[in-house]
Amino acid sequence: MLAHGFGCDQNMWRQITARLGEQSRVLLFDHVGAGRSDPSAWDPDRYATLDGYAQDVLEICRDLDLRDVIFVGHSVSAMIGVLAVAEEADRFAGLVLVTPSPCYIDQDDYRGGFSRDDIDELLDSLDSNYLGWSATMAPVIMGNPDRPELGQELTASFCRTDPTIAKAFARVTFLSDQRADLPRVSVPTLVLQSAQDAIAPREVGAYVNAHIPGSRLVTLDATGHCPQLSAPQATAQAIASFVAECR
């Protein structure tokens, strides 16, 4: 079960699903408010904390009666996975945290990499970009003719959400502090980080690794917060090996 992070949608996984599909059934979904989810399902109260998103994950598992799930969460979805596993460990056979951060904001001795002002600046960036990305601008973002596998329909919604929802999601993503939940994870866990990541620096990956009992840390030779895009083969390989071990 692959869960995308803040900013984009399930297309984030396109370059690694084929490899993972060789050994497992792959389940993709868009968080409420992202991609092609039903905008009317958005509820500011339910999604005011990451727990609302974790409940969605558990609801999907229950509705489809999924067992032995290996949850792969990117960025904020890594912490959504931590919450889901902490609540209902029986459903999960393993947890993969791709570029996770349990807390983005520096607090006391903890270094998350950001200050509250930084997050407010991000919210401003969202505002100024959505101003230019009005509905009439939507057709600008289309498939790349050189890479026809990225259909126009699929990419049209990629990285595009309602500005109100995006701001709320940014707030809950970057202001949440899930450090206390890490020790509650009781399933085999793989922490995947990029060698260079401006959002989740290596110290943060090491922190997650140190606080989830028995977890393993793999640092990919990748740049940026999205190794599934910048180093898809290495990312797919690392996840696939972990999945094989969980069987």
């Binding site: 992070g5 803040f6 900013g7 984009c8 960025s75 950001f114 200050s115 930084d118 997050i119 407010d120 600046e121 991000l122 919210l123 401003d124 960036s125 969202l126 970009n129 990285c159 970057f174 990541d197 401006a198 959002i199 940026g224 917060h225 999205c226």
Partner: peptide, 10 residues
């Protein structure tokens, strides 16, 4: 920093 976050996520 805010722009960097936007750059990485979008």
């Amino acid at each position: 920093v805010g722009g960097r976050l936007y750059h990485e996520t979008h």
